[in-house]
Design a protein around this nucleic acid. Structure first.
Lengths: 239, 239
DNA sequence: ACTTTTAGTGACAAATTTTGTCACCTTAGG
DNA sequence: CCTAAGGTGACAAAATTTGTCACTAAAAGT
């Protein structure tokens, strides 16, 4: 286990249990007593206030005062989670879709309205293919978080996107397109984009896209994407 | 020089200079060319968009787009969504719990670990009662987003919480307690808190809590909450 | 076409850091 | 005085990081 992760685990355990002996912690994080003692020393150096008591009933304890709460997440970071929720909601025949929806509603309530607009615009680009109940829906697929920052900008600011794409034959080519929509056909995710050099729509498998980047100075307009009948915009899914 | 510090130094230099060759960076941070290249790879894995060009006049460059990300949501705002996801994941016998989990994993990957710590700490307070597969799980219940800011502070900073509570007879009383955990027994959510005037734990239905506020200057420590056997901490649910 | 400059990769040994073990000290409670 | 706790120092083993070297690929100048 990584040293950083172990530090986190120790702090987490102390927060949960309130107090613990070094041996308990060592057992919990799967390291030796000595290592845990070293970790506690390191955490103290980092500013954590950790009280300790010897003897029976003793142990180490985190000082409640030494807690900060100013952490903030960027929109990009939240998108990663929102997209997961969107995918969940997409499965209308299953339970919890209502809950995922209410999660979105809560976010929207809690956010300043211009941010909500951004989120909505991004989710408006999301389409979902027909999900048969028989299908294994436990894996809706994923999107590599590393792709998100570029995609966010491209969709929200309507700027062209350039990336490497590995085609069916395995050859990597460079593409520059206008991103128009994202399509989920579990477990695969597709980028639906207008290829202006070919004057047509193209589908790109998300997992074959690499190194996406915004093309500065470009700007495009939304086009009507000719989806199949069984593809449903995320925003029009029954609640 | 520490690997983490070196990563920071590289990002700082790229921000300041705009563009630099790998050799320049290596000289700057006092490491070898190979090491800097490895660092750049690691930074890319962490989501930094770093362009590079070969040949004369080439070098590496930080994508200006990936530098902005100024719009930020507070932890409170994200909690609303995360709690929904947590509730979803809680239902381990149902599909999509893996997906909710991967949503969390993505967030954790995308965030510096100290921010994740706050989120995890809050989720650590969340417990879930036994969910039978027969039960109607389409409604896990909700928590009023208006309660969240006060709850977040109370849990993270371990400060007492004061609120109005409508008891079973409909009479509203004022309470001051130490919030120790949240418990989901679909469709009801409970605050499990230590009532120091009564020297005992009390359960409060969330939907009957109103106008919560932090009691300044107070501080309490975590207590061991005597949950029933079929109550599972969120963080220890099987994956 | 050739040279130079620059990014990037793979392999492997050297350097460094982290970890576990062990012996031992200190403190507190019964 | 015994036991259960925290805490320290030393040192070898284990793991990780780093540098070197040999190489490929791409871009630009000559």
């Amino acid at each position: 286990m990584n040293i950083r992760l172990r530090h986190d685990a120790i702090v987490r355990t102390l927060r949960r249990n309130g107090t613990a002996t070094v041996d308990e912690l060592a057992c919990q994080v799967g390291a030796s007593r000595r290592t845990v003692l070293r970790d506690i020393g390191a955490l103290r150096d980092q500013g954590f206030v950790i009280h300790s008591e010897c003897g029976r009933g003793g142990g180490v304890q985190l000082d409640p005062q030494s807690v900060q709460t100013t952490a903030r997440l960027s929109v990009t970071e939240v998108f990663a989670l929102l997209i997961s929720v969107a995918a969940m909601r997409a499965s209308r025949s299953l339970p919890f879709s209502g809950l995922a929806d209410s999660g979105l509603a809560k976010i929207e309530k809690a956010l300043p309205s211009d941010k909500v607009r951004d989120l909505r615009r991004f989710l408006d680009c999301l389409h979902v293919g027909q999900l048969s109940p028989k299908q294994d829906t436990s894996d809706m697929g994923t999107i590599d978080p590393a792709l998100l920052p570029a995609f966010e900008t491209a969709f929200l600011q309507r700027q062209n996107l350039r990336y490497g794409y590995q085609d069916a034959k395995g050859a990597e080519t460079s593409r520059e397109v206008e991103p128009q929509a994202m399509l989920i056909l579990p477990p695969l995710w597709y980028l639906v984009a207008w290829d202006s050099s070919r004057e047509d729509f193209r589908h790109f498998r998300m997992d074959r896209i690499s190194r996406p980047e915004i093309v500065e100075g470009t700007s495009f307009r939304r086009r009507h994407v000719p989806f199949e009948d069984d593809v449903c915009p995320f925003s029009e899914l029954p609640r």
